[in-house]
């Protein structure tokens, strides 16, 4: 594994980002900053705009207004493949792995892209040895070697989730976005996943959306709370736990 590209300044900056779908304003003026190595969780009640924010950053939609920067460069409205090449990688809430291929091939494809081999007809030259080696190393690091030849669609759900995380990391991103990485998992599986993600994303910058508070407190070192399209509070897990506005936002949703 190569270390994330070094550099100064924040990895991700959102300035006044807003998103409207027709007349509905889902996000109103979001300001957010992620520093290198930071692990940030986005939480908030349902409908707060977490997914929308996530999709804006990962390039699924363009924001209605505002600026998103990855490092020094503006990325709002940029297509997904360019975002990835600039060092942003995401996982999906609904597992998206290549079911017809082996686990090895799944990761191989991600590593290929990282080495810029996106159009190759031939497999000649040193670089292909490096790609294969990288793929094997990553699989070994993820402790998935015993599953490497298995067809992805035959893997257990939690193994597919692990593969998904592995692919996300394999393109060598500066910033990793995880969309509910433990959704649909049992408590025990989720706990394993937290450890797995922690290991796979060591030293990298992470932004995730997650409902499960155990996962959030297990992985994140800072938390942003989103409510009604705005960031209510940002801080360490302890600070967020004690924040009365956050409690209101969550409790307000539950008490009628």
């Amino acid at each position: 594994m190569t270390a994330p590209a070094s550099g100064q300044g924040p990895v991700l900056v959102l300035e006044n980002v807003a998103k409207r779908f027709g007349p509905i304003e889902v996000l109103a003026g979001i300001n957010l900053q992620l520093n290198r190595g930071e692990k940030r969780a986005l939480i908030g009640p349902n409908g707060a705009g977490k997914s929308t924010l996530f999709n804006l950053v990962s390039g699924r939609f363009a924001p209605s207004s505002g600026v998103i920067r990855l490092g020094e460069r503006r990325i709002d409205g940029m297509p997904a493949h360019q975002l990835n090449r600039m060092g942003l990688s995401r996982s999906f809430q609904i597992t998206q792995v290549f079911g017809g291929m082996s686990l090895y091939e799944n990761i191989y494809m991600a590593v290929m892209s990282r080495y810029g081999k996106r159009w190759s007809f031939l497999r000649t030259g040193r670089v292909w040895r490096d790609i294969a080696e990288q793929t094997r190393e990553l699989i070994a690091y993820a402790q998935l070697t015993s599953l490497a030849d298995r067809q992805a669609s035959t893997l257990a759900y939690s193994e597919q989730r692990a593969l998904e995380i592995c692919m996300t990391v394999a393109t060598g991103p500066d910033l990793i976005l995880l969309d509910e990485p433990t959704s649909g998992m049992s408590r025990a599986e989720a706990a394993n996943m937290v450890a797995f993600i922690g290991r796979m994303t060591q030293g990298r910058t992470l932004l995730m959306v997650e409902h499960d508070m155990d996962v959030v407190f297990g992985l994140a070192d800072t938390i942003s709370v989103l409510s009604q399209g705005q960031i209510l509070a940002t801080g360490t897990p302890a600070a967020i736990r004690d924040d009365t506005r956050v409690q209101d936002a969550y409790l307000g949703g539950n008490v009628h």
Binding site: P79, M112, M167
Partner: peptide, 26 residues
Amino acid sequence: LQRSPLGTVIRGIREQEERVRFLGYD
């Protein structure tokens, strides 16, 4: 072509196009 790296990516597009895009492929 089918056996080449490009062939793998093409099959990936058939299975999960969005995933391929988010791996950096146009």
